[in-house]
Design a protein around this nucleic acid. Sequence first.
DNA 1: TAGATTGTTAATCGATTAACAATC
DNA 2: TAGATTGTTAATCGATTAACAATC
Lengths: 208, 208
Amino acid sequence: MLKLNRPTLERLLLYYHFINVHMDQNDTVTVSSAKLATFMDSDDTQVRKDLAAIGLKGRPRIGFVASEVNSKIRHTLGFDENNRAVVIGAGRLGGAIASYKEFTDYGLEIIALFDNDQQKIGLTVGDHIVQPLNRLAAIVKRRDVHLGILTVPAGAAHEVVDRLVQTGVNTIWNFSPANITPSNGGAVRNEHIAVGLAELLYHLKKTS
Amino acid sequence: MLKLNRPTLERLLLYYHFINVHMDQNDTVTVSSAKLATFMDSDDTQVRKDLAAIGLKGRPRIGFVASEVNSKIRHTLGFDENNRAVVIGAGRLGGAIASYKEFTDYGLEIIALFDNDQQKIGLTVGDHIVQPLNRLAAIVKRRDVHLGILTVPAGAAHEVVDRLVQTGVNTIWNFSPANITPSNGGAVRNEHIAVGLAELLYHLKKTS
DNA sequence: TAGATTGTTAATCGATTAACAATC
DNA sequence: TAGATTGTTAATCGATTAACAATC
C-alpha cells in the first residue's frame, strides 16, 4: 500500500476540488499538470509526481483525463466508501458538524450525536436526537462505527477519547482545544482552531 | 521584523499551550528544550531554534523560564493586541464561531455577525444580533475591523470577499468550502474541513 | 568540580525544482 | 513533421537532526 504524507493528501484534495468545480466530467476533458500547478501556485513537476504516486498516467501532448484523476483521487482518499462516524458534544460546533450535509460528498455519514448534559439529551439537532454517552458503546458496535468526532470542552476530551478507544474507535477527529495523541494503531487529527488564528494575527501584527 | 513560517508558528502555539496547561506561571518555574521536545514528539534542537528565533534566551543547566516563554510567544503572535473581527454567515458554524468565548484568550473580539437571509436578520445568536450585510462597511469603518471570518456557503464566498476587501478588510479566515486567494497585501487562511477528513479517511482505508 | 543544558555549526535528510529525453 | 506535454533523473534548496564546545 502506498504511503502518502499529509501535504500530498492536501494537494490531492485540492486537485480534486479544482477539477470538480472547473471542469466537465466527461472522458474527453483533459487537464495538464501545468494547469493544475497554476491553480495551486506550485510546480508542474510536483503535480505529475503526485498523480504518479497514486498510479495515474498522463499522455504527452494531451495531459490527464480529468474524470480519471477525479475518480482515482476519490478512491484513494476513501470518499467512495461508506464511513460512519459519531459526534460527541452537542454544543453549537457539534450541532454544526452533525448537520453538515456536504460530508456525504466524502462518504462520511454522521449516525449519532452524544452529550452528557441532561439539558441537551433528547433535544433534536438537525436530523439527530442528542443521546446520552452511556449509549455510545452499544451504538458503535451495532453500526460498526470507525470514526469519532470530538466537540467537547477541553476538560472532557481525554475521558471521552478513552471511552471511544475502549469501544474500538481509534480514529479521532478532534475539534476540542485538547491535544490528543493517537492510541496504538489509531490516528488523530487535532483541528486546533488557534493555529489558523495565530497565523492570521501574526500577519496582522506584521502589517499594522 | 522576523519572518516565521507556518510550521514554526504552529510549534510556537503548541509550546504556549503546553506551558499554560502544565506549568505554574511564576518566575522560578523553568522548562528545558528537551521537555518541550518530548511533548511535541520532536527534537530539542528544534525547540531551541524556535525559541531563539523569537529572541528567547535560555540558561545552561536551567533551561527557559516558562513564564518568559509564554509572554514572548503571546506577544510575538499578537495575542496581547485587541483584534476585532466580523463573522459573515449566521448558520450553525457562524453562530458557533461568533459565540466562541475562548477567542478572547487570543486577543480576538467578534464584534458583529452578518447574514443576508431575511429569516435570520434580527435573530439573536449568542451575544449577537444578526445584521444585514449592507451594514458591513459602516461597522467595519466605525470599529476599525481588520479580520473577516467567512462561514457562508461556497457560492457566496467570493462575492463576500470582494465586499470585505472593498471596505479594507484583507485578512480573511475562510471556513467556507471555497478556495480564497489573498488580495494584495492581504492574508487568507482557508480552513478547508475536508483536508482533515481526507487524512483520517485515508488512514481508515489503509487499516481496514 | 562534575554534569546538565544551552547555543551553534556541520551533516543529513527529504522535498521541491530544474533539466531534458521520450512520446504522441 | 513540429511542438506540447509527460515521466524521470539530477540538482538545488531548506528543514531537521546530530555533534559538541561553551556555560553555569
